[in-house]
Amino acid sequence: MSSPAATAAKPASRKPGALRGQDLGRYTLLIVLLLIVVVTAIGNPRFLSVNNLLNILFQVSALGIVASGQTILLIAGGLDLSVGAALSVAGLATALTIMHTGSVALGILAGVVAGTVIGAINGMLVATNRATPFIITLGTMTFLQGVAILMSGGSPINGTGALFDVFGLGDFLRVPWPVYAMFLAILVMFLILRFTTLGRYAFAIGGNEEAARLSGIPVRRIKIALYALSGLFVGVAGVILTGVLDSGLPSMGTGYELRAIAAVVIGGTPLIGGRGTVLGTLGGVLLLGLVSNSMNLLGVGANFQSAVLGLIITAAVLLQKKA
């Protein structure tokens, strides 16, 4: 029954099937995106206007930056639920610094440093404790929400001067600056994941942490570095969002953690880690932005939007290949 020939054929017959499934999985997200584009364009021709397409990119830019950072965490088998609250803290750090010093440069520095430090602390907690990242960052998330309230004294911190002029109003070749920032973040993450040892270590730790340890990878240090890197991205997003809103708000990061994780997972990075791409994440981010924009342009009422969005996220995840 089990001749050598029969068994030799087994792995060979498995390979094309697996590849086919993978390709189909990669294309389903594109197909879903395309479907939404076509349906919306038929429903409202203005959808395809350059202005609207730029609007969509502008609307998802902060999310895209946060989700890029989250991608490498999920690849490494990690997770950071505190990114939304950290975004608020970073944004408030920026707004407060600008308010007190009048220096936009110092404000940017404050936001980016705040995000990075928060990420590094999350990384240390995750790397040195046996509790799951989910629980640990749920704790820091709640803590940071409180910090944001304390920093703001309960009210918005208004006025960011040149930051608003650049990120809120400014553009270059008609493309708003936050959009450039998002694509830069995605490019940086793409390069890290593909061409650096840090990226490779993230894949190895997410794929098999024990094998990574036995290969001499300093797992703890790498985890801290990855969370700090994601925190850096969150800080940048916080600075940009503060500019866009011309104010730091304790509520500005509301819901970012779940949307960022949803975008990463829709983009094909499994929650168990070991694989994933930041280009997939871009697809997930665009899907979230497109759906919201599409519903607004088609005149889907406020009472329907959440349900429809949920339906589409669920469908997009179901259509993904199995991890």
């Binding site: 490779r200 894949f203 070991g274």
Partner: peptide, 29 residues
């Protein structure tokens, strides 16, 4: 499966895993 290989990575990436320093310069592979 449990302690040796990273199953989600390629043959090449598994072979190089313990000596990436020799295959990189300033963290660049």
């Amino acid at each position: 499966r449990g302690r040796g290989l990273v199953m989600s990575l390629s043959i090449a990436k598994n072979i190089s895993l313990a000596a990436l320093r020799r295959l990189s310069k300033l963290g660049w592979l």
